[in-house]
């Protein structure tokens, strides 16, 4: 009996060690959740910070609404998907292709969108993203060729499914890298849609607004900064952050107009200057070049 008990304790201790890891992962329960605990009476107060940002489809839709032209020469070649060797390059270029599929979908280029979907599926396999995250979407894409809204919503679903899969399989660092790839490709397509700076142009306003998802990306990446691939991304973000930090922010004012209805406004936002635009454009082109180049 005594031997049996000792055996059970050893076995249970092994499980307990596993449980410690789970407690570690409990600190990061769903997605990007980073905890800070304090004790208040008998109940422990735990603050969890979750950094979210729009999908590449949501970001590019703003540029589409600002009437950017379709410039396919700036898209990445889907045939290069199998040229990337490291996990970092694969994840960054996965992000690039996610932005490209969103861009082609917005402009109703169905054949190109399906090519990007194939490239994403190939890279997804190499990044250990379950094929079930994409299979039904590929079927849907092929069934809905010719319907623009379906294609746009599908490109968003590809992003959401992938993020959902990675967050729930403890690969938050990969989400940070892929999201940055998608972000820089969206920025690259946007800055190349304007040859010269035009004050008050809606595209200039949208490029200024890219500051906000970048700040969430930075916070998210910092939370995963012990990962080497994320450290590389942080260096890129830091470069862009220095440019955007020159743009001052106004305080937000909130007015509750009726129960449950709030209006958020600012006095006036400082616009993106010609120098800011030049710097953002140069950085976006240089970073994107480093990401897509094959060794």
């Amino acid at each position: 009996m005594e031997k049996l008990s000792v055996g059970m304790i050893v076995l249970a201790s092994l499980f307990y060690l596993n449980g410690c890891n789970s407690n570690q992962s409990k600190k990061k329960t769903d997605g990007f959740q980073y905890n800070d605990s304090t004790k208040l009476s008998d109940i422990e107060v735990t603050k969890s910070f979750i950094y979210l940002f729009p999908s590449p489809g949501d970001v590019l839709e703003r540029f589409y609404e600002a009437e950017i032209p379709y410039l396919p020469e700036f898209l990445h070649d889907p045939d290069q998907a199998d040229s990337y060797l490291t996990q970092q390059d694969k994840a960054l270029n996965m992000g690039v292709y996610l932005a490209d599929i969103a861009y082609t979908a917005l402009f109703y280029r169905t054949t190109e969108a399906v090519e990007y979907l194939d490239a994403i599926q190939d890279l997804g396999g190499e990044l250990n993203i379950s094929s079930t995250a994409f299979e039904s979407l590929i079927k849907r894409a092929k069934n809905n060729i010719g319907i623009r809204d379906s294609l746009v919503s599908l490109s968003n679903d590809v992003f959401y499914n992938m993020v959902d899969f990675l967050e729930n399989s403890g690969q938050e660092h990969t989400v940070a890298v892929i999201s940055f790839g998608a972000y820089i490709e969206s920025m690259y397509l946007a800055v190349n849609s304007l040859e010269t700076y035009e004050e008050g142009h809606p595209v200039i306003q949208q490029i200024r607004e890219l500051k906000y998802p970048m700040e969430n990306l930075m916070n998210q990446a910092e939370s995963e900064s012990d990962n080497e691939d994320v450290q590389a991304v942080l260096r890129y973000i830091d470069e862009l952050s220095k440019i955007y930090s020159e743009i001052a922010e106004e305080k937000t004012t909130a007015k509750v107009t009726e129960p449950g209805v709030i209006n958020l406004s600012k006095k006036k936002a400082q616009p993106l200057s010609e120098n800011n635009f030049k710097d953002v454009k140069e950085s976006a082109i240089a970073i994107r070049q480093k990401i897509v180049e094959t060794n």
Binding site: Q33, L40, V45, F49, I50, Y51, Y212, P213, N216
Partner: peptide
């Protein structure tokens, strides 16, 4: 998003609007 929550947990979502 959806998350697991218990009494005493504060979820702080950072979003772009």
């Amino acid at each position: 998003r959806s998350n697991i929550i218990g009494v005493g947990d504060q979820l702080i979502y950072n979003l772009v609007f």
